[in-house]
Design a binder for these strands. Structure first.
Length: 639
RNA sequence: GCUGGCGUAGCUCAGCCGGUAGAGCGGCGCACUCGUAAUGCGCAGGUCGUCGGUUCAAGUCCGACCGCCAGCUCCA
């Protein structure tokens, strides 16, 4: 009797029902018997843990399903594809040693140690080999072996990186995965056979250090991506192409917005058209800040080195700073605006009635970033922060943080960005007491929670002087960018002995809230270029309209139209070049000008313009005054 | 910063095994005077990133430097 009991297991299925199965039954068999679409399943969960579909079940438990459409399923597919690639690598280059091969955000990679430098053509050959292995439809089998045995195996195979990994494993057993002649040390789970894979593409090769440490040997990292379906893969590859088409470095050049030159690496030049965008962003920013009681200031770019010693930047930020000398006195180029704002705060005695005091500045800061990380406008060495420092009483923190959250919503929504929030806590190399950090972190958390906001916690990623809330914008391609930030700081007021006189006549210490919305004007502009693919809304467009006379005879009227629109305050160009109308329309389209205004004999007679919108074929003929009214409304609404 | 790749006309790119530089687009000129995404013809434009080396000869080979691109965070 006892034997019979041991021979069955009670499984709680996804629908909540409990059924008995013979011990050693596999999830795949259960799926078949319960009518699950087995082909759509990637693996299973066993009491919450991911397992293979062919894992024998020996005890009672809760069985769940993971299909290809789920995030977990996708990860498993990618992980299995990484193994598939590794097998192909070993077939083509038996001398290659395998390091690690995990799934990552948009695919997977495998780090390998191989003398030969792999080229894109090699990737194609690898892909072909992978397809062969898929066609072979090799079962992928999990095997549990003693750790010592695994050591012997990888010793024999000459896989020294696997041995290094094994050396750190204390468990008595480890799991291996075998598919055909290939075996890898792996926790799993994996799909049941190589035939289940197929929608993949190898993307590129890059260098990566073993264990991410520059002291270690540099390996070749092969990146690829994989999806449950060919359509999913193609959609992703299209997204990559679209992202390339929108690359702000390319559009910035094509649309004449900005330049980066060898003479000033990491220090962008703005062209007249790029400046228009900048100025419009600044105008919006000022409007929204003044409305909310901020006061704009401007502080110097060079400040005495002593100030940076006192602020803690010397100790915590020196490697990122530029230094110079003036009359033999050491100065630093500011990497942040806060010390300057603090100096202004300290001018004169502050009363509790002055608080909250909201200083804002479009402050140009310089930071020495590693040469290898520079990237267009998105990672530069000089940039303009739309910075503000709120000097507040401790009891005002929450309300002020909530005010900033509201301002962020206002500005981001104008551009159609949604965002995610991240709360970053105390990093290792930081100033201030534990108590201060707890208080500051608590204040941020409270503001978030009171507003019912969703947020993620990022342990140890705060600024050296305080915790922060970061805003990760989601753009029109679904990519995320870190822009806004709110940081609560008890440390700087302490260091600089900031004070205000309270209602009790005593001196009290204010709290500082650092915050930025765009983050950096340069970066934000780069993001906007990609977000809009260069097709800016009317209020931001460097050129809002082009007047196009049909033929030379219409040039005088076109000039009148052009002048009238410029008088009305719009950025309009006149294209009366001796070219066909179709050609000039194409030019305006390529330059992504929002409005094309065609004028010929008909329009000249009636005092009208024929309006063609960017990207549209239909057009309307309307009076100039009607057009001005529409534009005014469109610009005012920043649509 | 590190590793790998790349650097030729304003832009995109060709240029074999070393023999002295080419196209398209753009620009300029001329013709056409044109009604909605590229009219035709012609002309100009390059110390081949910089410096040094090898060679009778270097865009091409070697070295250094500068810049750009990708990656360097994801831990069986």
């Amino acid at each position: 009797m006892a034997e019979q009991q041991a021979a069955t297991v009670q499984l709680t299925l996804a629908d909540g029902s409990v059924r008995a199965f013979p011990a050693g039954v596999t999830p795949r068999q259960v799926a078949q018997e319960t009518g699950m679409p087995v082909d759509e399943l990637v693996c299973a969960t066993w009491d919450g843990e991911l397992i293979d579909l062919d894992r024998p079940l020996e005890t009672d438990g809760r069985l769940g399903w993971v299909d290809a459409a789920s995030d977990q399923g996708l990860e498993v597919i990618r992980h299995s594809t990484a193994h598939l690639m590794a097998q192909a690598i070993k077939r083509l280059y038996p001398e290659a040693q395998l390091a690690i091969g995990p799934p990552v955000e948009n695919g997977f990679y495998y780090d390998i140690d191989l003398e030969r430098r792999l080229t894109p053509e090699d990737l194609e050959k690898l892909e072909e080999e992978m397809r062969r292995i898929v066609a072979e439809d090799l079962p992928i089998r999990r095997e549990v072996v003693a750790t010592d045995e695994a050591r012997r195996l990888f010793q024999e195979l000459g896989e020294s990186y696997k041995l290094e990994i094994l050396a750190e494993i204390d468990d008595p057993t480890v799991s291996l995965y075998r598919q055909g002649e290939f075996v890898d040390l792996c926790r799993g789970p994996h799909v049941v056979s190589t035939g289940r894979l197929g929608a993949f593409k190898l993307l590129n090769v890059a260098g990566a250090y073993w264990r991410g440490d520059a002291q270690n040997k540099q390996l070749q990292r092969l990146y690829g991506t994989a999806f449950p379906t060919q359509e999913g893969l193609e959609a992703y590859l299209q997204l990559l192409e679209e992202a390339e088409r929108r690359d702000h470095r390319r559009l910035g050049r094509e649309l004449g917005l900005f330049s980066l030159m060898e003479e000033a690496p990491g220090f962008p030049f703005f062209h007249p058209k790029g400046m228009v965008i900048r100025n419009e962003l600044e105008a919006l920013w000022r409007q929204e800040h003044i409305r909310r009681g901020y006061q704009e200031i401007r502080t110097p770019i060079l400040l005495s080195q002593e100030l940076w010693l006192r602020s803690g930047h010397w100790d915590h930020y020196r490697e990122n700073m530029y230094f110079t000398q003036i009359d033999e006195r050491p100065f630093a180029v500011k990497p942040m605006n806060c010390p300057g704002h603090i100096l202004l705060y300290r001018e004169g005695v502050k009363s509790y009635r002055d608080l909250p005091l909201r200083f804002c500045e479009l402050g140009l800061v310089h930071r020495h970033e590693l040469s290898g990380v520079l990237h267009g406008l998105l990672r530069v060495r000089a940039f303009t922060q739309d910075d503000a420092h709120l000097f507040v009483r401790p009891d005002q923190i929450q309300e002020e943080v909530e005010g900033v959250l509201e301002l962020m919503d206002r500005i981001y929504s104008l551009f159609g960005f949604s965002y995610q929030l991240e709360l970053s806590t105390r990093p290792e190399n930081s100033i201030g007491t534990d108590e201060m950090w707890e208080q500051a972190t608590g204040a941020l958390r409270q503001a978030l929670e009171r507003q019912g906001r969703q947020y993620r916690v990022n342990e140890g990623d705060g600024a050296f002087y305080g915790p922060k809330i970061d805003f990760h914008l989601r753009d029109s391609l679904g990519r995320t960018w870190q822009c806004g930030t709110i940081q609560v700081d008890f440390a700087m007021p302490e260091r600089f002995e900031l004070e205000y006189v309270g209602p009790d006549g005593n001196r009290h210490r204010p709290v500082m809230i650092h915050r930025a919305i765009y983050g950096s004007l340069e970066r934000f502009i780069g993001i906007l270029i990609e977000h809009y693919a260069g097709a800016f809304p009317l209020w931001l467009a460097p050129v809002q309209g082009v007047v196009l006379p049909v033929a030379e005879a219409h040039a005088p009227y076109a000039r009148q139209v052009w002048e009238r629109l410029r008088e009305a305050g719009f950025r309009v160009e006149l294209d009366d070049r001796d070219e066909k109308l179709g050609y000039r329309i194409r030019q305006a389209e390529v330059q992504k000008v929002p409005y094309m205004l065609v004028v010929g004999g008909r329009e000249a007679e009636t005092g009208q313009v024929t309006v063609r919108r960017r990207g549209e074929r239909e057009q309307v003929t309307q009076s100039l005054e009607e057009l001005v009214a529409t534009w005014r409304e469109e610009v005012a609404a920043r649509r």
